[in-house]
Write a protein that binds this DNA or RNA. Structure first.
Lengths: 193, 193
DNA sequence: CGTCTATTTGAATGTACTCAAAAGCGGTGG
DNA sequence: CCACCGCTTTTGAGTACATTCAAATAGACG
């Protein structure tokens, strides 16, 4: 259960076995079934989730009611609404399972306590956040500077395995295009090869 | 010199006067003249900058050599390349002054030391980063979901004062459109009113 | 005043969208 | 096991938002 997350932590920092055990005690194993939500718009995010097994999506609604996918989270990713979680304010995003999934949840209050007791975690989560920021910035630049077909190819490279697991119209949403247009892109690419 | 940044810090955390003084000792006042760079692509970012007075832009180049503006930084903003600064790797962004500006710089090593000595700063910079992340995410969603004319109006609301200080084609770049198109948007809006 | 850069305007083009309908696919129940 | 239902993907035609290229105009600065 904890092998993968321990490996994750060890890439950021080194902990004593007591610290690691304390960390484990803050985590709540949680199963979530396909299509159910971990968080909905308007709710206050109590937990952040580490994905042990499965696949989720984080998305928001624009004013026209269209969904915009912000993140896919598969094994070894964290997912949550940073804004709602840290400020304990109503969320404007949804987090939904795309497959039956196994998560490790950390509660807001436990995370604060963890930071107090083991400052190395404050650092770890700061580094995680930095990484998320860089990923988002790259994606933003990509979206502005590249046409949709290139963005799709980049996506295939960056997230191998996700395409096979996720319905195509979600990928279109992630890329910022309509499902119809992604379909056309794929058929064009298929012809070339 | 330090009044504004102290106010900034006090919005995040409370410090003793020794801690505050120690913080000041880590900051280097720095003047930078219009059109010169604080950081160029390929360089390793040594400093992050707090803007006391003036205006800067952070931007990157796409593969076609077109500039994409990532951030404007005016008074009371921090600016820097998070990726290059934290990982001490070559930057892929530029930070350039758009006006003669006064900055307070913090060196990478000094920031690390600051985190060691005053853990409250680790927290402060994590909160700053969280805010940056949320701002970027909002902008990203805006860019995907909204047409350019609405994005322009949002920009005017969110950053009042920037439009007057910054050449229009930079704003177009920030919005992810061509200068010609922004010009048309503005003339359309002018007709309506 | 002249030069250089920024902005505006025009015409043609392209990328991506909308709406509509057909085809494909997967799960469920008879 | 097959038939049916709902959802996803594909295909087609018309459209819109935004771009490119070119040229004219306006502004800023020495």
């Amino acid at each position: 259960m904890y092998a993968a997350i321990d490996e994750y932590v060890s890439r950021c920092t080194t902990l004593s076995s007591e610290e690691l055990e304390y960390f484990h005690s803050m985590l709540q194993p949680h199963k979530i079934s396909k299509k159910s939500w971990l968080l909905r718009e308007g709710e206050i995010s109590e937990y952040e989730a580490y994905v042990v097994k499965g696949c989720l999506r984080k998305y928001c609604m624009d004013d026209d009611g269209a969904e915009i996918i912000l993140q896919f989270a598969i094994e070894d990713w964290w997912v949550g609404d940073i804004a709602s979680f840290t400020m304990q304010t109503p969320s404007n995003v949804y987090v939904q399972a795309l497959e039956d999934s196994e998560l490790l949840l950390i509660h807001h209050d436990d995370k604060e306590q963890l930071f107090q007791r083991v400052p190395a975690f404050e650092r770890m989560f700061r580094l995680m956040l930095q990484r998320s920021y860089m990923v988002l910035q790259d994606r933003f630049v990509d979206t502005l500077a590249r046409p949709a077909d290139e963005r799709y190819l980049h996506f295939l490279e960056k997230y191998p395995g996700v395409v096979q697991r996720v319905p195509q119209h979600y990928i279109a949403s992630y890329l910022g295009i309509t499902p119809e247009f992604l379909s056309r892109i794929r058929s064009r690419l298929a012809k070339k090869a």
